[in-house]
Structure formats: C-alpha cells, structure tokens
Amino acid sequence: MSATVFVTAILSSMLINNIILTRFLGVCPFLGVSNRIEKAMGMSVAVIFVMVIASAVTYLLYYYVLAPLEISYISTIAFILIIASLVQLVEMVIKKVSKKLYKGLGIYLPLITTNCAILGVVELNINAGFNAEYGMWNGFFVAVTTAFGAGLGFALILFAFSSIRERLEHAPVPESWKGIPVSLVVAAIMALAFIGLGGIA
C-alpha cells in the first residue's frame, strides 16, 4: 500500500470531485454561512471533524455489522442515526473539554446533522467499494482519507467563496441579481474552473 494511494485519494476528493462544485453536497451552508470568512472556517472545521469520524464509524458498521447480517438495506437509517448521535456526542465532548472551542464550533454542530455533505460523503464512500479494491483495513484508511479530503475541499470552497463574497457586497450588482443569484453565478464560474482539474486525473 503506497502513500500515493492516499495522496491521490485526498487530491481527487478535494479538487477533482469537489463535493460542493461537482456533487452539489453542502450547497446550503455554502450559500448561507459563507458571507464571513470566520464563520465559514468555523463551519468547515466542524464539518471536517464530523465527516472523518462519521466515515470511520459507518465503514466499520457497514462491513462488520450490516453486510454480514445481510441488512445493508437499512444503511440509510443507520447512517443518519449514527451521524445524529455523533454530532450530539461531539458537541458534549467539546463542551466538556474546551469552552472556547465550544463557543466557536457549538452553533454549527446542530446544523451539521442535516448537512447533506456528511451523509453524502458517507454514502459515496460505501458506494465506492474501497474494501473490495484495497482490502478491509486498507480500504478503511482510504475511506477515512477520502472523507478528510472531501472535508478539505468543502473548506477550500467555503473559504474562497467567502473571500469573493466580501468583495461582491461592494460590487454594483443589478437589484434582482443581488444575494443568492450572483453567488450562484460565482459558483458556476468556479465549477467551470474545476472542470479543468478533471484533466489531472
């Protein structure tokens, strides 16, 4: 198992298959939260955190419990419950460990349960069949790495976008295009730029 597999996993899930721009996962926070860099970064850290843990837990749950029992058809319910409880758990732990961190991340955590980026990445990881390609445990690490890369991709776009939006607010935009429409146009241009990255693969 060479390191290139992991580097490829990170790069491809972060840039080439960016969850916001090519899979439209997490568009709501992208349009809603991202008007301030600080907020965008707080949200991103929380998302990366939950995404990585959720991917690890669901991978094990799927391949050690659901698949052997042949009840993989309940995976969606199982995954969303895992994510919901994980978010609760993370919130409690952060509250106990660091008041400061809780102040920063706390408000974003409840939003994450219904953030489709988390469930989306989890489902994508299971669909990708890493266990068949790399073996059970190597597949586990690839899945976790992919989730981390996807989270980084989310953060990257949120960061870039919030920076652009700060400028957009001072730009002379026609009244009816103000707010969400012009943001979507910016997203479209960014998505076009990301098509170019597909060539790297």
Partner: peptide, 13 residues
C-alpha cells in the same frame, strides 16, 4: 455542474 448553478441563478434572478 456549472449549468446547474447558472440556470438556478437565472431563474432566481
């Protein structure tokens, strides 16, 4: 993907 963003933007506007 870009088309999704673009068409939605036009409709919203």
């Amino acid at each position: 993907p870009a088309g999704g963003f673009l068409i939605l933007a036009v409709l919203l506007a």
